[in-house]
Structures are given as C-alpha cells and as structure tokens.
Design a protein around this nucleic acid. Structure first.
Length: 570
RNA sequence: GCGCCCAUAGCUCAAUUGGAUAGAGCGCCGGACUACGAAUCCGUAGGUUGGGGGUUCGACUCCCUCUGGGCGCGCCA
C-alpha cells in the first residue's frame, strides 16, 4: 500500500513544484500513525517543506491535499488498483500531518493481491542486487561455542535472511583465527593432556584451555597414534597437535551451527591469508599509500588519518605480525571481492576495534557509511530466575549445544531475536521450555498451527476452495464480506508487513520482525476467539479463509526470515 | 584519566531513526471451552522516559552536564 500512496504524493508535488519554485520533487516518506484513528498512513512532507518554503506547514499541507484531489491523480480514481477508489479520506491534522484513510475496497483489493502474489509481494527489491558481506560468529576454534556466540549466530543469520529477501546478494562468512598464539596454546593444552593420559606428570601450560573437550581431543589422538609422541618435545610435534586440535574444534563448531540452522558461504582461514601472501600484499599497498611507517623498529598503520585515537602497530619490533595485520588483509580481501557493503557482527566487548577497522576499509576505498558493525550484548543465562554460574578460567560454561539440546533451536533463535542486539538479554532456560504465554515463540507458531488446523477442518467440512473464489473475477469482491472491525484491522496489519520488513532491513534490525509477528499473532488470536471462520455462510467462510490464508502467509514469511520453523501442528 | 554502550510501568523490553495522546508481554485481581486447537481470549490497574539544562513548530530520540551500571583503552589475541 505504501508505493501507491508515495506515487500519489509525488505526482502532487510534481504538479506543485513550479509554483513553489523548486528544482525537483523533495524526498518524502510515509509512516504508520501511532493511533489508528489518525488514519492508515501519514506523511510529514508538509512539515519538512515548511523550512525551505518558509511558509506554515498547514498551508502547504492544504495545497498538497488540494493537488491530490483536484483533479484526482490516476490511481485515486477508477482504473487504479482493481479499479477502486483508494482513499476514504485525506485529512490534515496537528502541525501539518497529512493523514490518509483507505477505503475498504482498497483494502480488499490489496488483500486480494497479497493472496494472488503470495510471498513475492511481501518484500520490495531495495537491494537491487548490491553485494553485502556479513561476517559473524567468527569464534576462535579453541573451544565450543557458548551462548553469546549463539546470539551472534541468530542475529547474523536473521539479518542475512532479511537482506537476501530485500534483494541484496548476501555472503555469509566465518573468519577462522587459526594462525595465532591461541590455537597454539590449544595445541599445547592438548599435548599436555595427551602426556598426562599416558601417565606422565606433564605440566599444564599457564592460561591453557582446561575444558573437558581438550581431554577428548587428546584421547582421540591416542586412539590414532598411540604413544608415538610420548618422548617428544612440543617444539617437535606442536604443529601436529595444534592442527588436529583446532580442526577438531572447528568441525564441532560447524556442526553446532548447522544443527542450530545457521550456515555459511565461506569459512575464511587466517592462516591462508598468510600462506597466500595476502598479509604482506595488503601492507605493501598501505605503504604505497603512505599509510604505513616505521617507528621504534616497528611498523605502524596510520589509522589516525581516518579518525582513530592512535596509530596501530602491524609489525612488532621482533618482526612478528600483530593480530591486526591479518585483519587488515582480510578486510582488504573483502573489498577486493567487490562488496558494496561490509557488515561485521561482534561481541559488544570488541567495540574498541571499530575505529581501526573502519580506518582500514576507508584506507582501501570504502566510504564510511558502507561499513557497519552490529554489536551483540551479553546474554545472561538463567534457570528459574537464578543466574547459571560459568567460569571461563575453569573451562566451565554452558555451550550453545547444551542450550539447543535442552530448549530446541527454534526457541533459542526466537528468544535471541526478542531484543535489540545491543541490549542485554536474560535467557531463562526453564521459561524457555514452558509452553506458556510467557514464551513468545509458541504464541506465534500457535497462530500458524491454528490456521493450519482451520484449513484441515474446512477440508473435512468440504468447504469450497477459497482460492478459486479469490482468483475468479468476482473473487476479489468476495473478500468484501469481511466487514468486522477486527477484520479490517487485521488486513491493515498484514499490509504493513512490507513496511516493517523494509525498516528492519535498512536499519539492520531483525528484532522488528519478531515484534511485528507477535502483534500479528495477537490480533489473529483475538479475532479467532471472537469470530468463527467456518460457518454456514459460504461466502463469508470463503472470505474469512482468504484472510486466514493471508495471515498464515505473512507469519510464514516472517518466521522464515528469523530462521524459525512454522509448524502446521504443534 | 579517556572513549563507547545502556538507564522507559513492580519485572523483562518496544517506540516507524526528530513526529501526534510513550506501547506490549509477564506479574496481581476477576471472567470465557457441549462450536474451527484454552500453547488462546476478554476486563481493569500501572509513567515527571535516571536528575538538570539546551537546540525547534515538535525530543524517549540530537547537544551539554550530573548520577548510577556494563565494556573497552598493549609492539596481547
């Protein structure tokens, strides 16, 4: 419904621009009014123009409304969508809002279109094929994924779905830190456990990885090679242990994510960036741009040029690269692969790295606004309201796998998406499992399942196919049997989905979909309790089945974006 | 010490990116199944948006300041 109104307003402005002395038509937008009584859509165009025209917004609004009505702009009158009048009224309110109220016929015609076109009518092509690269999770392959990674995975996955549906070409990537001292430390930890399992009183490295999974890897190695490395020093066999250990972890991580329903297009190895010389190359490029210099026997990236607090070391005095050096290479590589927009999803504790990475991307030619970091806040895991104690030092923490095994992937994903990414989240394992109203997942899924059940009922009662009616010539008019207030409100809500969707996509905020779905499900449940869908009145039954089908369609679409299933039975 | 994020109903959170009368759920209390699934619905109550100042037609939203909480600030990764 939004595009039609926008077109009408634009045409009105087009006809007014000369007498207003404007070069072109200003950018305008419409919004959903807070209060339903104010109308179905509203524009603040007049208020926006007040400043440039130096005239009161009320007057300007009047002129715009006049231009829309006399003579009527095409879609307004016959020959528009389905040949119906679009508006019931256009009114000016407050300081200069123009409020549009649609006619019922317009709603029926739009609902008919939704039923006819299905999912494709729910998402506009705002991306137009532009390429977006989203890097998320990127957990160190030194241990299993924890709950925080799960939240990052859920948000990243939903965001990618959102952008894909919005017409962007999305690449989902996981960056593997397989080159640093952390994986080496993992290797040492496994080696120590290996020796201990074989009866040696071997020392465990300081700050080594103490989780049970380390011992599991050691056990596996014993199964494969026995005591072959018993009398060797770590310097002689470290590469073997390190490789086996992190590859093992990585396989577990990939499996956990897959079972969580999150997949990646590319797993970028840090080690590979070194081996292919991309780290060196990227630094050479920086040097050519005079953005790399030597000081105190170290090499520095001139990130202050782009607004960072201080320049950053990329090659240390001892000749070793810093972690940042391979980050530079990876981000240059992202740009070399031709992405239009770069999105990184990080834990909120990494916010201090934003300026330096932004600097890197800018140095290689990406405009600031094309880089976006989504920060994921901490998740506090609760059980019956009490925090679940975790100690990273002792290697004791609840893994994502444990959570998914306990509550299920759908529930976990949905709960991760019930908050804005950058606000804290309490995740209570017990209430998550309860099949109560406290659990928003069931609430939304139940609406979908309930509608599925209605259709099963309808078939049993041999109600004639609603689809035939809707598609036939009189089909669209058959929807006009929907006269109840709740029905009109429900249709309106359905037609708002594309706007909510677009807002979520441009602001990278999948949680908006979550909220919308809860509202829509709520409206449906309420409607269901008040009005019977299947009755003796065939025409009414068909119209209501059509409405149900549309609700189902939108619920399914929204859930798909969130990566949550839409079950026909629960 | 410097920087970033957060502070909204008793609790957990929204608020169309500067719009109109700040909204949901939970919790409390009271109701609704011999009709399509009660994992549902209906009805009330709850607010100086942490405090103060500023910007303007208009502020939960932007700027300054204070209070209180989280996180960063290495030639670590």
């Amino acid at each position: 419904m939004k595009p039609i109104v926008l077109e009408i307003i634009r045409k009105a402005l087009e006809s007014l621009k000369e007498q207003w002395g404007l070069e072109g038509v200003p950018d305008i937008d419409v919004e959903i009014p807070k209060n339903e009584e104010m109308g179905d859509l509203a524009t603040t165009a007049a208020m926006g123009l007040a400043k440039t025209l130096k005239r009161p917004p009320g007057k300007i609004a009047e002129e715009i409304v006049e231009a829309i009505k006399n003579p009527p702009i095409p879609p307004l009158s016959k020959g528009g969508e389905g040949g119906v009048d679009v508006f019931e009224s256009i009114e000016i309110a407050g300081p200069g809002f123009i409020n549009f109220k649609f006619s019922k016929d317009f709603f029926y015609s739009e609902l008919g279109r939704l039923l006819k076109e299905g999912h494709s009518s729910l998402s506009a092509d705002t991306g137009k094929g532009r390429r977006v690269q989203v890097e998320f999770v990127s957990a160190n392959p030194t241990g299993p994924l924890h709950i925080g990674h799960g939240r990052g995975a859920a948000v990243g996955h939903a965001l990618c779905n959102l952008l894909t549906a919005a017409g962007f070409e999305v690449r989902r990537e996981f960056y593997i830190n397989d080159a640093g001292v952390q994986v080496r430390l993992l290797g040492e930890s496994v080696f120590a456990r290996y020796l201990q399992l074989l009866g040696l009183d071997a020392p465990f490295p300081d700050d080594g990885y103490k989780g049970d999974y380390v011992e599991s890897v050691a056990e596996e190695i014993i199964k494969r090679v026995g005591d072959e490395y018993l009398n060797k020093a770590f310097e002689d066999c470290g590469e073997f242990f390190t490789n086996v250990a992190y590859k093992n972890m990585l396989a577990d991580i990939a499996k956990d994510l897959k079972d969580f329903g999150v997949v990646f297009d590319r797993w970028q190895s840090e080690k590979e960036l070194y081996e292919k010389g991309k780290v060196q190359d990227s630094l050479i490029t920086l040097r050519q741009k005079d953005l790399l210099y030597e000081k105190d026997e170290a090499q520095w990236f001139r990130s202050t040029t782009f607004g960072d607090d201080k320049d950053r070391v990329v090659v240390k005095r001892d000749g070793e690269y810093t972690y940042f050096a391979s980050d530079i290479a990876y981000h240059k590589d992202k740009l070399d692969r031709g992405f239009d927009t770069i999105i990184n999803i990080w834990g909120a504790d990494h916010h201090g790295y934003i300026p330096r990475i932004r600097s890197v991307l800018e140095a290689f030619g990406l405009p600031k606004e094309k880089f976006r970091v989504i920060l994921i806040q901490m998740v506090t895991l609760l059980r019956n309201g009490e925090p679940v104690q975790m100690s990273k030092r002792a290697g004791e923490f609840i893994t994502l796998r444990e959570v998914v095994d306990e509550v299920g992937a759908d529930i976990a994903k949905f709960i991760f998406l019930t908050r804005r990414a950058d606000s804290h989240l309490d995740f209570d394992l017990e209430t998550a499992k309860e099949q109560s109203a406290e659990n928003p997942v069931f609430y939304v899924q139940y609406a979908f399942a309930r509608i599925s059940s209605i259709f099963r009922q309808a078939e049993e009662k041999t109600v004639k196919s609603y689809e035939l009616r809707v598609k036939s010539e009189e089909g669209e008019t058959s929807l006009s049997a929907l006269k109840e207030d709740e029905e009109i409100s429900l249709i309106k809500k359905l037609l708002q989905y594309p706007m909510v969707f677009e807002g979520a996509a441009v602001s990278f905020e999948p949680h908006r979909i979550t909220y919308y779905l809860q509202e829509l499900a709520g409206m449906f449940h309420s409607y269901y309790n008040k009005h019977r869908v299947i009755s003796d009145d065939a025409g009414l039954t068909n119209a209501r089945l059509g409405l149900c089908r549309a609700v189902q369609l939108v619920l399914e679409e929204g859930l798909k974006v969130l990566g949550v299933s839409a079950p026909e039975r629960m």
